[in-house]
């Protein structure tokens, strides 16, 4: 029973983590909270649904939706953040302009898809073939979702650690002015950061849609705020922390249900987040580690 719940938590946590790494990456590089991340998550889920319903195979739809989400991220930066960066607008104003973009994306989705729930033709995780492993069971789709999320996070880790782009991103996160002086192209690096962060957020949206076999206009609402808790748990701006935070959240949520505490689940989550912020603003794992990734 507990083993099954922990496994469910692991599957759930992988998607939370994937969402949160993009959230935290933008914070790590720019020190701003991007509240349009969840709207892009939702848009990508709908895009993948549309592609799948036109007969595009799911893996290809996932990839295309993630690329679309990445491009949305670049546009988001150009519209909502770049002009404010140019005038040093602080932290409040970009947060509000990202809410503006989120409202616009939501409106466009509502215009295209209406308010009805959409289902993938393949029937989602619950309808897939079941694999039994000792006392636990899971479906092939759940396994594929999990493996996709892990693979994408490994790719992100590789980009940050081993590529020239990754070095630029870490340099900008460390000190924007110094990085620019050393020849890092700031705007290009920030644009690339938004592409990566948003395509991962978009992929998380598609995987969530597949998991529950549903895309809805308001599917981004809960994960937007839970994502905040995850990146606080991990330490704002820390990619590895966000991964760990995502898995912790997945485990806590499924265990809360197992122990009959599901009604209080969110209060526990946000209570822990609040206490952590107050007592240890750098998160459970210490320093912000995007810079050291």
């Amino acid at each position: 029973m507990i083993a099954q719940q922990l496994l469910n938590g692991l599957f759930l946590g992988a998607v939370y983590a994937l969402f949160a790494v993009g959230y935290t990456l933008v914070f790590g590089v720019l020190d701003i909270l991007n509240l349009a991340h969840a709207a892009i998550f939702t848009a990508a889920a709908f895009a993948a649904f549309s592609l799948a319903s036109m007969g595009v195979p799911i893996p290809l739809a996932l990839l295309a939706a993630a690329v679309m989400a990445g491009i949305m991220g670049i546009l988001l930066d150009r519209v909502a953040f770049a002009p404010l960066r140019a005038r040093n607008a602080g932290t409040l104003v970009p947060l509000i302009s990202s809410i503006g973009v989120a409202i616009v994306i939501g409106a466009v989705l509502r215009g295209i898809y209406g308010v009805d729930e959409r289902h993938f033709a393949i029937g989602g995780a619950a309808a897939a073939p079941v694999i039994h492993l000792g006392t636990v069971r899971f479906t092939t789709v759940e396994l594929l979702i999990f493996l996709s999320a892990i693979a994408l996070m490994l790719v992100l880790g590789w980009i940050l650690r081993a590529t020239a782009l990754g070095r630029s991103i870490r340099a900008v996160a460390e000190d924007r002015v110094a990085a620019a002086l050393l020849g890092v192209d700031l705007e290009r690096t920030i644009g690339a950061t938004f592409f990566i962060a948003s395509s991962l957020g978009g992929a998380a949206g598609v995987l969530t849609g597949l998991e529950y076999n549903s895309a809805t206009i308001d599917m981004g609402g809960p994960i937007e705020l839970k994502g905040l808790a995850v990146i606080i748990l991990g330490g704002m701006g820390s990619v590895t922390g966000a991964v760990a935070g995502g898995f912790i959240l997945g485990a806590v949520e499924t265990l809360a249900i197992a122990f009959g505490l599901s009604a209080w689940r969110d209060a526990i989550l946000f209570g822990v987040m609040f206490l952590l912020l107050v007592a240890r603003p750098t998160g459970l794992f210490g320093k912000r580690t995007l810079r050291a990734a």
């Binding site: 519209v79 302009s97 503006g100 989120a102 616009v104 939501g106 409106a107 466009v108 509502r110 215009g111």
Partner: peptide, 9 residues
């Protein structure tokens, strides 16, 4: 919503 978002931006 579109108008709200655009006005806000």
């Amino acid at each position: 919503e579109l108008v709200t978002g655009v006005v806000l931006l």
